Every structure is written in C-alpha cells, then in structure tokens.
Computed example of a mutant assay.
Amino acid sequence: MISLRIDGALFNYRVAGVAVLNGKVLLHKTPSDNFWTLPGGRCELFEFSKDTLQREMQEETGMDAEAGEMLWVSENFFLYNGDKYHEIGFYFEMQIKNLPSQDDFLGVEGQDELLFHWHDVNDLHSIRVYPEFLADALAKKPLEKGHYNSGYLDLDAVSVIPS
C-alpha cells in the first residue's frame, strides 16, 4: 500500500468511489469514527487507480464495482488517531454491479468493521463528511470535475454527529 511514514507523518495515496443512486450517495465509516467518507482505500505500488477502487470494493464489501470517470483530485492534511497525514485522493464515479438494495450493510477493513449507509445528497451538510469539500461537490447536478485542497483538519477533535 502506498502509505509512507516521513518525519513523524504519513503520506497516503487514496482512491475513492462516488456511487450516487436515487439521490443518495454511498458513504462508510468505522464504528468509532465520528465522520463519514466515500468508500475506497490506498493504492498498491504499480496498481492503476481504477483497479484500486475495484479491488477495495471487492475486499471491503464483496461487491463488484466499476470505476468510471475521474471527478476530483484532492490534497488533504489532517490529524487522525494521533497521526498527521498528507493525503492525495483520486475520486472516481462508481457503479456497483448487481446491487441488491440501498439498505445499510456491514463491510470489513482488515480486522475492522465498516458501516455502509446511503445518505441523501441533500442532507450531507447535517452530518460530518470528510474531506469537507464532498458535501458541496456532491450537491451539484451534474457533478463537476475539480481539484480541491483542504486545510489542516483535526479529525480526532471533531465532535460526534449522529448519523
């Protein structure tokens, strides 16, 4: 996985999928997180970004996903679980093949549980979604391509907002 520890901080190369269906977007979080994010994960060395998204969805959910066009590139700096991160994120349109329903479901990230939920795109400002640009970007119809930079965010200090 492309995650490098440099001078007490971590650099991450992350790929995420944007699945929007019936006005809802698929987000996930761990039970202990106080924010939601798009599903995806870290790219492996010599792996194309679209392949990363498909692999991560298969590993985390058992579902087959197809990566479409790249929507956004994001540069994020944040503190998470006591670690400082510098993250480059690629965000792709994503279709989930043979989606059984839009009900909540559980997935896994290694040994950790992931909670998946389809959130109404119009309600994203009432929950904590990270990176912060997502609530505005996902509300645009049609979705607009772009490059986003986020200032330093302390995810450890963000208060819990119910889902």
Rank of each mutant, 00 (worst) to 15 (best):
E93M: 12
T30G: 12
Q54N: 11
F116E: 02
E93V: 04
N12F: 01
L106Y: 13
P31T: 01
A139F: 02
D33Y: 07
N76S: 15
R42I: 09
V108I: 06
V158I: 12
F35R: 06
G146A: 11
L138Y: 06
K50V: 08
G68C: 09
P39Y: 09
Q95E: 15
E56L: 12
D83M: 13
G8Q: 03
E66N: 08
L26I: 01
F90M: 10
G82R: 12
L124Y: 02
Y80C: 12
S101A: 15
P100I: 09
Y80R: 15
V15T: 01
D136L: 04
E66T: 07
M57H: 08
D156L: 09
P39R: 03
K50G: 03
E69H: 11
D112E: 14
Y152P: 01
N22V: 00
F133N: 07
E59Q: 12
L143T: 03
V121E: 02
Y148V: 03
P131K: 06
H119Y: 09
V160N: 13
M63P: 03
A9Y: 05
N122L: 10
V160R: 15
A67K: 06
R42S: 15
N149S: 13
F77D: 12
I127K: 06
D154A: 13
A139V: 00
V121T: 01
A157E: 15
G17A: 02
G107I: 02
P31S: 06
L71D: 12
D154H: 10
P100D: 13
D33W: 08
E69A: 08
D120S: 15
P100T: 13
F116G: 04
L21Y: 03
A139H: 03
I88G: 08
H147R: 11
F48W: 08
L45Y: 10
G82I: 14
V121G: 01
V73L: 10
Y85L: 13
E60T: 14
D33K: 10
F105H: 05
I96V: 15
S3Q: 09
R55Q: 07
E132P: 00
L115F: 08
S101I: 11
E109N: 15
E56M: 11
R14H: 07
L38Q: 02
E44I: 00
T37P: 02
W36S: 03
F116V: 04
F35Y: 15
E47S: 04
P31K: 14
V129W: 00
V20L: 10
E109I: 06
E69S: 11
L138K: 08
L99Q: 09
E47K: 09
A9C: 09
V160L: 12
D83S: 09
A139Y: 01
E144R: 14
